[in-house]
Simulated scan of single mutants.
Amino acid sequence: MKNLIVLVITAVLVISIIFSLFSCINEDRIEVPPVKLEDVNGNYKGRLITVQGQFRSEKIVDFKIKKDTLTFQEFPIKEIVTAVVKDPVKTQAALTAMGKVKYNIKYTSVLNADKNWVELTFAPKELELQIPVDGTVKKAVVAIVAKQTGYFIGLDHSLRFVLAAEKITVNDVVLNPFEPIYYNFPFCIKN
């Protein structure tokens, strides 16, 4: 009698597990809403993780995308100026004197086959900075590159991309030693 009860309970459990698995398989999948290339346009707020060697910092930044250009009204230049100036007090004075630095990045975009995300290929140009130090001005030319393709995701309308400052030339001399600066934007959303 005990064996019969155990057998019935086991059979009921097996049947319920099988039905549970089939119901999971047959559930409707979440549909990702389709996007258009124009959906990328707008004002964004995003998390910026800046990495240079062992140093890492995080902050929230704003930028705008319109047509084929990503625009920073205030590009993060602290690490660049620090690499050029070296002295922390003089670096802060230079940053204050320079104020906000605007930087535009051109890009091209392509929809994926399912039209649920947009791939952005960035083509950054050199960033030229006039850095005031000790009564003179150092001309710094920063080679900015896109380290990977950017993505605008249709599911949450977020944008992700990575840039890097790979080389700095100061008054026509390559800054050496110089540790590249990585600007990681892992999650940016429209305002």
Rank of each mutant, 00 (worst) to 15 (best):
E179S: 15
K100C: 02
V110H: 07
V170I: 10
K2Y: 10
V89H: 03
Y107S: 02
N43T: 09
A93G: 05
F178M: 08
Q52A: 14
I15A: 15
L163Y: 01
Y151V: 14
T96E: 14
A97Y: 03
Y44Q: 05
T69W: 01
R160H: 06
L155D: 03
K86P: 00
V145P: 00
L95D: 01
P33H: 10
G135L: 06
T108F: 08
I131P: 00
V170Q: 06
I168T: 08
T91R: 11
D156M: 01
A94H: 07
P186Y: 09
Y107L: 02
K64D: 00
I65R: 13
T121Y: 12
L21W: 07
S23T: 11
G154I: 01
I60V: 11
M98C: 05
K167L: 11
T91I: 04
Y182I: 12
F72M: 09
T69Y: 03
P33N: 09
R56G: 12
Y183N: 01
N171K: 00
E38K: 08
N26V: 09
F122N: 06
V101Y: 01
C188P: 03
S57A: 14
D172Y: 02
R56Y: 09
P186D: 05
L120Q: 03
Q148K: 06
L4E: 12
Q73M: 09
R29G: 06
F75L: 08
V142C: 14
L129F: 09
F161S: 02
Y151T: 12
T108S: 15
A140E: 01
T69I: 13
T149K: 14
E27R: 15
Q148C: 00
Q54G: 04
F187Y: 14
V85Y: 07
L4A: 13
A165S: 15
G154V: 00
I105N: 04
Q130N: 11
G154S: 05
I49N: 09
T69L: 08
I15Y: 11
Y183R: 03
I153G: 00
N116A: 05
E79K: 11
T10G: 15
I65L: 12
K78Q: 12
D114L: 07
I9R: 05
V85P: 01
V51K: 06
P76K: 10
L120P: 01
G150K: 01
L48R: 04
Q130M: 07
Q73L: 11
N184R: 13
Q54V: 12
L175C: 13
Y103P: 00
V110K: 13
N116S: 10
I30A: 08
